[in-house]
């Protein structure tokens, strides 16, 4: 689906941001890009979405070279980008116009457009009563949803979300991540998130790409990448506390790569030979994958 070959990017001020990144992301994956500030996460995500042209190397998305001329319309149908700050991507004075902006640019007929707007708004949790509201008067969480709905309206196969949980409380963060997970599991989208939130990565991402100074430091299933704390330390990333705790208890027979509290509790209960006292509703990783991401997580 996405192929980056020896990708390098240098900002106009000469700052090198990416240096020889080569990777492939298959359709139906849920990928997290992690790394310290300035590691090149957002630059890589923007290069993958065709918003930045590589200085060297190339990116091919669904057979389209992102640097080729006149491919933008075809490219946005394949890959959509949700910016970190929703305020940068809300240009219209009504929520409805905002969501229909992309399809309009792509020449989707008005009647069809209306159906698309209503459908994606429902998926994103944007109520029709808000359609005539000005997007800037909505809460940040809702603005983020409108931004995601606006991207979804183009129906891209891949959705890149830059910092989906920044500035949101725990509940809103979980809502956004559950929403992205539904898109991944139920609608078969490929999801790429850029984030600093390791518990979120542990709970939701299937694959982790850790960047350090513009290069790929680690790339693999989340469990495997988080099992290498010394490697991750190079990019100032620490696995979630629960994983570190599990690692510390590994000597007691607990599996060392638990990613969530639920997994660790199950392990402790197993080792202790008892039963869980309370059944906890589980989110994210614990739900059995039913969508296209299922095979890759196995």
């Amino acid at each position: 689906m996405i192929r980056a070959e020896r990708l390098a990017f240098r900002y106009p001020d000469g700052t090198p941001a990416l240096d020889g990144v080569t990777l492939t992301i298959a359709a139906g994956e849920f990928v997290a890009l992690i790394g310290q500030n300035g590691a090149g996460k957002t630059t890589l995500a923007k290069c993958l979405a065709g918003l930045l042209r590589p200085t060297h190397g190339r990116v091919v998305v669904g057979g389209i070279d992102t640097a080729a001329k006149g491919v933008m319309k075809a490219l946005v149908r394949r890959i959509g980008y949700v910016f970190q700050n929703p305020d940068h991507q809300l240009f219209n004075t009504r929520v409805y116009d905002e969501i229909s902006y992309g399809p309009k640019n792509l020449g989707v007929p008005e009647r069809e457009r209306d159906a698309v707007v209503r459908e994606v708004a429902a998926v994103a949790g944007v109520r029709p009563e808000l359609f005539s509201e000005h997007p800037f008067f909505l809460s940040k969480g809702l603005r983020q949803r409108v931004a995601i709905a606006s991207t979804l309206a183009i129906r891209p196969q891949v959705i890149v979300v830059d910092e989906p949980t920044t500035g949101q409380d725990y509940r809103q963060s979980i809502d956004v991540m559950e929403f992205l997970t539904r898109l991944w599991r139920q609608q078969g989208h490929t999801i790429i998130i850029v984030t600093h939130e390791m518990p979120i990565v542990a709970a939701y991402a299937q694959r982790v790409i850790a960047l350090c100074r513009g290069r790929v430091l680690a790339d693999g299933p989340t469990r495997e990448v988080f099992a290498q704390p010394d490697l991750l330390a190079q990019t100032f990333v620490k696995p979630p506390q629960v994983t570190r705790l599990a690692r510390a208890w590994a000597g007691a027979g607990v599996r060392a790569d638990a990613l969530t509290v639920d997994e660790l509790v199950d392990e402790v209960v197993r080792v202790a030979g008892g039963e869980r006292a309370v059944a906890v509703p589980r989110a994210g990783r614990q739900e059995p994958p039913a969508g296209p991401g299922a095979q890759a997580d196995a």
Binding site: F83, Q89, G102, N105
Partner: peptide
């Protein structure tokens, strides 16, 4: 901000050319 907003419009299929 202007640059980012243009990028965002491009990401939504706006073909400036």
């Amino acid at each position: 901000d202007f640059k980012t907003i243009r990028e965002a419009q491009q990401a939504r299929g706006l073909d400036l050319e």
